[in-house]
């Protein structure tokens, strides 16, 4: 486990308020990439274009629309919509208690436990620090023109309530804002 992760854990434990962005996170790089597995695992602060360059070498791409390739992959995940979620296989996170947790993995099929890795897509840094993400990638030849997928529907009161409770599950002290 890297020192930076331990630092982040400490920081969460000792803070009452944290606003996550990639500069603060300061944690980037490609962790693991097996092109024949169609899986890439990256640290959340990695710039999307850096990952794309790696994928390009193997004629592979992210199978979702990239809004801004200068963004970090963690930022795209945090504000992401369903198309990104479809490609997520697993995440490592630090929750609001400073615990390092692992959900999902590096395989295409995985139904052990709730799908937290996909649930946190779009969580906007409000539930946990996403430190590492594994994605399914595809050969370029199989991906036609990608379109952005937007979130449109407004939330019902019941949904707001459930999301509020889920925030408390991951961040009981309300550290992330």
């Amino acid at each position: 486990m890297s020192d930076r992760i331990e630092q982040l854990q400490e920081e969460v434990k000792n803070s009452s308020s944290i606003h996550i962005d990639s500069q603060w996170l300061n944690y980037s790089g490609i962790e693991e990439y097996f092109s024949e597995e169609l899986v890439i695992t990256v640290k959340a602060g990695t710039a999307i274009k850096e990952i794309q360059a790696q994928l390009e070498e193997n004629q592979q791409i992210f199978p979702f629309y990239i809004t801004d390739e200068n963004q970090s992959i963690g930022a795209a995940y945090a504000i992401g919509a369903q198309d990104i979620s479809d490609s997520v296989l697993g995440v490592k996170i630090i929750d609001g208690s400073g615990e390092l947790l692992n959900f999902g993995g590096q395989v295409m099929k995985n139904v052990a436990g709730y799908d937290v890795a996909r649930m946190l897509v779009g969580s906007q840094g409000q539930l946990a620090i996403i430190t590492q993400i594994s994605f399914k990638v595809m050969p370029k030849s199989y991906i036609a023109d990608l379109k952005p997928s937007y979130k449109e529907n407004e939330r019902s009161t019941l949904r707001e309530e459930i999301e509020g409770r889920l925030k408390t599950v991951f961040d009981p002290r309300g550290v992330f804002n």
Binding site: D115, V116, L127, E152, N153, E154, R159
Partner: peptide, 19 residues
């Protein structure tokens, strides 16, 4: 409760799959 791919917020539709 309707959960759709187009919902704003957390990925509750993905959470429901496999629950």
């Amino acid at each position: 409760l309707i959960l759709s791919r187009k919902d704003k917020g957390l990925g509750l539709l993905a959470l429901m799959n496999g629950s």
